[in-house]
Design a protein around this nucleic acid. Structure first.
Length: 477
RNA sequence: GGCGCCGUACCCAAGUGGCUAAGGGAGCAGUCUGCAAAACUGCGAUGCAGCGGUUCGAACCCGCUCGGCGCCUCCA
């Protein structure tokens, strides 16, 4: 059974969905004012894998992930560039899909935008005002934190501690320094919508409450996001939502750790971040390879802990994946010698069981991946003894099936080596095959000078040759 | 000041009370090979930052020390 570390309870809880075989999850997406960096990729990937694993485990998953498309940073960006906010958000939403698509991150079931839910947001704000949990001052509406006694239960903070540590300028109009905006009066030139308190725009936290409740119901299963969202964002979401509905909000709160660079948090403010597209542009590997390498790399650390981003880490991930795809290539070859081996099925079953056990343990992807490494080892050994064509296909399918949970091993063909020129090889596959025939004829004649010359020629095009015992060769690049 | 995380081999990374401390990358030696590549076989932490303590037993629990980091402010 799947257990998940729940920030709310501070421990690993068995996952039991509200409705049998149905899981409803909401994940805080991105504010679309810039390109996504690796940190966004990690978060998106973690919840993509959670969703895939729930589906693999037999759940029908309703997965909602929002776009924050109204915000101070967007307004600022639009003003800097002299374009409309819509132009900014449209651009970066497109970029988001492009980047995440390269990473193999599947779109959520629903991906709502804040600006499409203004009426829901206004309605929820009104409810909170009516219930006396929020108050109106000069066109702004604030949530009154001390009216919600459970405030701080997610982040394990006491109101007094927050007050003592507050480094923000205190807005005198607020009843309590920690009170936060549900609705903000718009200044001239800012996006604005009509409301009972005058023209304005939503605060940040309320959109997630309004959209998650609208699309998933007042109480749903999983709510996720980066560690940094625990406070204040998720704490505020809980206060608003529970305050408005009087019911429990999300039951499992899942938070992923940060991507760091040189042991430091990667962030915009530190300027030490890498965007996803930078990684792809910089990479000497093909797009498919880079996407899978990045996935493998990100999944080789448990989602809850920090992850140090480095070229070396990426390279190690690539090497590890090459081991898998090398095996897949061999599995594609028709049998030569058949030694019936009944172990294959048990080896696969054992691997699947171990894989599930690891994933059940709070999505322990590093262990899950290592179980697949063990399967690779086992299948390689069986291949030495001899597997029939059917068994080879069976083995390949097992990797494909289990790998699909992690989004790995789905490619038919993997470009191993570095490209000479971005986008183009010198030699086509048929030309390579012809060269190999030529080389093997030379080998038969023991003309090894000629054979090695051809090898060098192909190597210059990024191709590695592997000679098989039967005198033919396979190649990869 | 408050809350919290981390320190495991050359590198990455699981393990959080009890079989020989997973797995990967790199390395070394061997099998195979015309050579190579791949695969396979073998080697590699008597020890888990340090020091104390609890326990029959600790990397794992407790305390202290050292080192690194995060949140409390927009942030995945």
């Amino acid at each position: 059974m799947l257990t998940l570390f729940n920030t709310l309870t501070g421990k690993q809880d068995p996952f039991e969905s509200l409705e049998p075989n149905k899981a409803r999850m909401y994940v805080c997406g991105v504010t679309v004012y810039d390109y996504c960096h690796i940190g966004h990729a990690r978060s998106a990937l973690v919840f993509d894998v959670l969703r895939r694993y729930l589906e693999y485990s037999g759940y029908e998953v309703s997965f909602v992930k929002n776009f924050t498309d109204v915000d101070d940073k967007i307004i600022k960006r639009a003003n800097e560039q002299g374009v409309s906010c819509e132009a900014v958000t449209a651009k970066y939403i497109n970029a988001y899909y492009e980047d995440m698509g390269k990473l193999g991150i599947a779109p959520a079931t629903k991906e709502p935008k804040a600006t499409d839910h203004i009426t829901d947001i206004v309605a929820m704000t009104e409810t909170l005002v009516k219930k006396g949990l929020a108050y109106h001052v000069d066109g702004d509406v604030y949530f009154q934190v001390d009216k919600y006694p459970a405030y701080g239960r997610l982040s394990k903070r006491k109101l007094e501690d927050l007050q003592a540590g507050a480094r923000v300028e205190v807005d005198e109009r607020k009843h309590h320094p920690v009170d936060f905006a549900l609705w903000k009066r718009s200044k001239a030139g800012e996006p604005s919508w009509p409301s009972p308190w005058g023209p304005g725009r939503p605060g940040w936290h309320i959109e997630c409450s309004a959209m998650s409740i609208k699309h998933l119901g007042e109480t749903f299963d999983i709510h996720g996001g980066g560690m940094d969202l625990i406070f204040p964002h998720h704490e505020n979401e809980i206060a608003q939502s529970c305050g408005a509905t009087g019911k429990e909000f999300a039951r499992y709160w899942i938070h992923n750790g940060f991507v760091q660079v040189n042991q430091e948090k990667m962030s915009k403010s530190l300027g030490n971040f890498f965007t996803i597209r930078e990684i792809f542009e910089k990479s000497k590997w093909s797009q498919d390879v880079t996407g899978e390498v990045l996935r493998y790399f990100l999944l080789s650390t448990h989602y809850h802990g920090p992850l140090d981003f480095s070229d070396q880490g990426l390279h190690e991930a690539k090497q590890a994946l090459e081991g898998f795809y090398g095996l897949f290539n061999r599995l594609r070859e028709p049998e030569s010698n058949t030694v019936a081996d009944r172990n294959l099925v048990s080896v696969i079953d054992r691997a699947r069981e171990a894989f599930q056990k690891a994933m059940d343990d709070d999505l322990n992807t590093p262990v899950a991946v290592s179980e697949l490494q063990k399967l690779r080892y086992d299948v390689n050994k069986l291949l030495e003894v001899g597997l029939s064509t059917g068994e080879r296909q069976q083995a390949r399918e097992a990797f494909r099936l289990v790998g699909s949970v992690l989004g790995l091993f789905q490619l038919d063909r993997w470009e191993y080596g570095a490209k000479l020129e971005p986008g183009q090889y010198q030699l086509s596959s048929t030309e390579v095959d012809a060269k190999l025939v030529e080389r093997n004829e030379a080998r038969k004649r023991k003309d090894f000078r000629k054979a090695d010359e051809i090898r060098r020629l192909l190597a210059a095009d990024g191709i590695t040759i592997e000679d098989k015992p039967d005198g033919t060769s396979r190649w990869k690049r």
